[in-house]
Each structure stands twice: as structure tokens, then as C-alpha cells.
Design a protein around this nucleic acid. Sequence first.
DNA 1: CTTATCCAGTAAAGCGGTTAACTGACTTTT
DNA 2: AAAAGTCAGTTAACCGCTTTACTGGATAAG
Lengths: 341, 341
Amino acid sequence: MATMQEVATRAGVSIATVSFVVNGTKRVSPATRERVTAAMAELGFRNNVVARALASKRTRIIALLHPALEHRLGSTSMKFFMSAANRASELGYHLVLWPVVTGPDELRDLLSGGLVDGVVVMEVKMEDSRIERLTDLRVPFISIGRTADTTHLPFVDIDFEKTMEDGLDYLTGLGHRRIGLVIEDLEGTSMAGYAPHIRSERTFRESMTRRGLLPHVVTCGPGAAGGRQAAADLLATEPDISAVIVMKDDSAFGLVRGLSTAGRRVPDDVSVLSIASSDEAGAQSEPVLSTMNAPGHELGKLAVEALIEQLDGAAAPDAELPHLLLPCLLHVAGSTAPAPA
Amino acid sequence: MATMQEVATRAGVSIATVSFVVNGTKRVSPATRERVTAAMAELGFRNNVVARALASKRTRIIALLHPALEHRLGSTSMKFFMSAANRASELGYHLVLWPVVTGPDELRDLLSGGLVDGVVVMEVKMEDSRIERLTDLRVPFISIGRTADTTHLPFVDIDFEKTMEDGLDYLTGLGHRRIGLVIEDLEGTSMAGYAPHIRSERTFRESMTRRGLLPHVVTCGPGAAGGRQAAADLLATEPDISAVIVMKDDSAFGLVRGLSTAGRRVPDDVSVLSIASSDEAGAQSEPVLSTMNAPGHELGKLAVEALIEQLDGAAAPDAELPHLLLPCLLHVAGSTAPAPA
DNA sequence: CTTATCCAGTAAAGCGGTTAACTGACTTTT
DNA sequence: AAAAGTCAGTTAACCGCTTTACTGGATAAG
């Protein structure tokens, strides 16, 4: 690969001039610029990213941190990732998915090594040590999801509170009064304290109570099997249940089947609303699930924009931290219907 | 962050010595080693990855290239990714998922820039320009999946041929004679020429013919809806079909529902076998699908090992290229049964 | 006609490491 | 006892690019 020095020699200029041409850092006369450009083309010059990074202390690489192994990337996360990657690319950055395998030290290496300009954190828990670590390391970052305390946290997140309220508005609007919530049980796993679950459950309980209704909450095991069991558990507690909100695609699929097995027709006897999901996921079930779609695309875009603004120093030093909340949007399909008489 | 020079000063040695301690590149007396180690600990020294990369021309980073947007990461790919990342980590490398957004130039930048030591390519088509490009750039790489011509291609892949034979052995062993194949139609999409589909279909046709049976092949649209339609199409062609092999999870879910809608019970009337799938995916359907499980875990591990062997120069210069094929393993669940009389 | 300003371009000092070649003291060999 | 090895450490030349300070000629101002 041709180096900058070779280009300089060939164009009969100094290496600095080449650098100015490449980066547009300083004015160069049209004539020399032309010579340099030609030389670059002839030699097939490519700027060495590593050398540039060392000298300038910027790589234009953003890492999307992903807790490896645990929790596989759902379609929502994937959408988010793609959207973020595209937006980053438009803004001249690379967004890579970095599975943090070995724990905090690996993180430290990348960051203090200067390999990465900034970080996006996902799958955040109510208390999350990674956040503190990033703050300590003074790495520019943004979080997808919020910890319990958000005062010093730049984040974008799904507005689970509003999503839940909207969902309940919709269901009660259909006449439902006995409504259950199915949430995967993460206690004991590495995802214990996962914020979306906790917020959703809390809001569900509060909102139901406020509406003068009894909150029926059932936790379940992982996968479709867990959802299936949840149906049985729920019906055992409250046989007259007429609507269920469920928080994970797997669980939702299992839930619907569990309800059928128990002789409840969906949506005639029991309505099912899958939240923080997507059209595509909903379409995998029969009947097609009514969903509240996670705004993965928008969140990805916004997260990257906020982070890059911070990186490029476009944001005022003491500007307010980004605190963006977007609710899931209701998409009515075949799994919800008016409450049975 | 403390630099190596600072550590050296503090320990009263030269910077080279510190480097030797850090990398174990040269013998250092226990006494000095101890002083250096202590100094590093006190200063919280972290090796600067970028500087190291520039000087040594190695980053110990491997990029898993992913064609952005197109084809979202299925659970098989994800398993593969995780397994590869873990194995890489064990071997002292980082494996990151790099969505190539802007096309070949981006690729070129990373590689000629020396940001990445090697590359893993996935979602390979029968003719794939990326392979040629990587060869041209002389970047060490390994492919998950094979192009049509594999003479110069280092790869690991699912043995679709054997998988299909095994699947057909199993089904014919159950007495099935009228067997269909459902494959998603990718013509006209960016994934046209996707190797797994082509190999599977070809082997299906050949093997069926060899067995003296008629190969019923139906292509379908994307998602569950496509699979559903495929059921109708297949029954229109061959109403007495008694078994169907299907190649994608989405399609499989839709297919099962489509069959039910058409009044066929699974598995009593029609058996369904989902290939290149996984237990977890199969469990999302009702009845639980019999699957042939993609060896994502093994492939990820093997791919990374082969690549790193190449990187570390452990392989002889003219050693044979890795050509590894692993079949999917049959996992019998609830969607297959003996052929009806 | 000076002196002050511009301007395009250059020289050179890093950025934080790696590594080949070298040094000097001490141990073996013959 | 002289020649030859060992061995732990050091020196210094890179790796390829960025960026600040500087130069010298051309133009504008006084």
C-alpha cells in the first residue's frame, strides 16, 4: 500500500501538503491539489487508519457494546443496530458491534487504547456497573435504555411508561377489565434488574391500580415454553382473564399456544397484546399478534446522532444531556378484540 | 492514561524492557519484571492498542463482515457469531461484527489501513465479489459458506448435501414418498445466488430423482406469510404430499399454519422438517418442529481457529486451505411422523 | 519605498509503541 | 588466561500520519 510519503514524493510536495489535501485541513492551491490528487489516484493511496488514529487521537469508530452470550440479539436490537450503523456511516463514522466477552478489562483496553471514539451501551439494567465505568474512563457514550438514576446519563430509550399506559388505554377501551401481564423472569440470570421489565411491570401495577383494576402479573421461564406455562399460571390465578399484555416475542408465541391449549380462543375469549415487539414478529404467530412496535429504527438514529454531536464537540460543554424517550406504537392485528360479554 | 514511557521511568528501566515484560517477547530477570509489573499496577497502565498496531502491524482484531440491512441476523448466525467471538477471545483476539454499509471502499480502508488483521465473511453466494476482493487485497480471511468454485477459498460450511441426504433418509425411512421442498425465493433481492438455497435445492432434486421419487419444489415469498402461501401452492401441485422439508424458520412457521388452514394435520397428515434451523426456533411452533440443527457453534469455533492459525503463521505457507464441512444434526420433535397409509 | 499581511508550502516534533542491533558484565570453553 | 558465549538491558530507528511553528515570496497598506 502506498504511503503518504510516497504520494508526496510523486507529486513533488511535502508530506504535510498531502495530509492537508486528504483532510481538507488547510488551504492548498488548486494546482498542487490537482497534482496530489493525481498522484494518489495513480498509487491507489489509502489513508492508514491506524496511523491517523495514533496521530490524531480519533478513529471515527463507535462501538456498540453487547453483552456476549447472554440474551441473543432480538429483531428489535437488530433493527436498532442496523439503523445506528447506517446513520453513523452517513456521518462519516463506523459503528461496530463489539461483544464484550472477557468483562470490564477488555472494555478498558479498547477505550484507553484509543481504538474507539465513543460507545453505545445497550441492554441496560436499573443499576449498571458499565455506566459507572464508562463515566470513570471519561469515554463519550450514550445508553440505549436508562438506569434507575438518569441524572448523569445520556440516553435514548423506549418510553415504557407511556407504552404501557397506551396499551392499557387500548385494552380498557375495548372493554377489558381483567388484564394480565406476562414477563420473563430474569432473576438469577445475568440480566437480573433489566430495566424494561422492571419499568413495565411497575407501570402496569400502578396504572391498573389507578384504574381501579387488579394487576395480575405472572413471570415465566425463557422461550416459548415459558410463555406456554405462563398461560396456565395466569388462568389458574384468574380464570376469567380477558386480556394479556406480554413483553417478549418468544413468550408471546408460547402464551397464545398455551391459551389455545387451555381452550381459550384468541382473540375471542382472550386478547393478547405483545409490547416492545414488531410487525414482523407479530406476523409469525397465528392469529397475527397485535403489537406495540418498538421504535428501534428511530432510536438507533437518534442515539448515534447524539453521540456524534458529543464527539464532534458540536454540543456545548454544559449542554443538557440527551434524554430521549419514544413510545412503542400500537399496531392492531388479529390477537385483540373487544372483551367478551 | 499512563504511557509505557512513564512506567519505564517509574520502574527505572528503559521503555524497551517494559515492552518485553508486557509482551513476553524477551527474557527479563524476575527482579526487574517485578518492578515493572508493580509500576504498571500503580500507574494503571494499559497498552495502547493503536500505537501497538502501528508499530507491530497487528491489531488482534478480526472483523466479521456482515452485509448490512439485507438479511437480518438469524439465530443461527447469531450463535455462530457468539461462538466465534468467544473462541477469538480465548485465543487473544477480538472479533467484532462489522456491518459494511458503504460498499467495497469501506472494506478497503479498514484492511489496507491495518485496522483489522483478518476477516470472516458470511452469507456467501455462489459467485461472490467480496471473495475476489479479499484475495486481491491479500487479506487473511475465512469464509462461512462456499462459492461455486472453492479451489482458492478457505472455508467452513454446513454440509448441505449431506444434511439433505440425511433428511431424506429420515423421511423416506418413515415411509414418505411424496416429499416437497419449500425454499424462499431470493431472485431479484440482493441475496440472489445465496449458496445454501441453491445447494439444498439441487441436492434435493438429485437425491429425490435418484430415489425414484418426484421432487416437488416450491419457492415462496419472505416471512411467515410466504411460508403460508407455500403450503397452498404445494397442495395445489400435489394434494397427496405427505412430507415437506423447509429451509427457513419464518417459512416453516408459516408453512405449518398454512397446512393447518388447508385442513392437513401436522404431523398426522403431513410431516414437516425444518433444516438448517435450531431447537429453539423449532420450539416456537406448535407442534414443536422436528429440525436439522445448524452447527453454528462448531462452525464459529472452527472458523476462528482456522483463521487465527493462518494469522499466527502457525500454518505452513503452502498448507492445504481449510475446507471444513459439518452437517446439520437431526433433532426429532413433534412435526414428523410415519407416512399415513 | 518600507513595513505589515497574506498565502502556499515545508520542516520537524510528536502520537505510543516494537524490535533489531548493540553494550557490558559475567560465565564457559579450550 | 585469552577467546567465546550468555544474558539482562539499553539505544534508537522506525510505523504512517497530524499539526504547530516557521519560511520566503507576493500583495496591500502606510
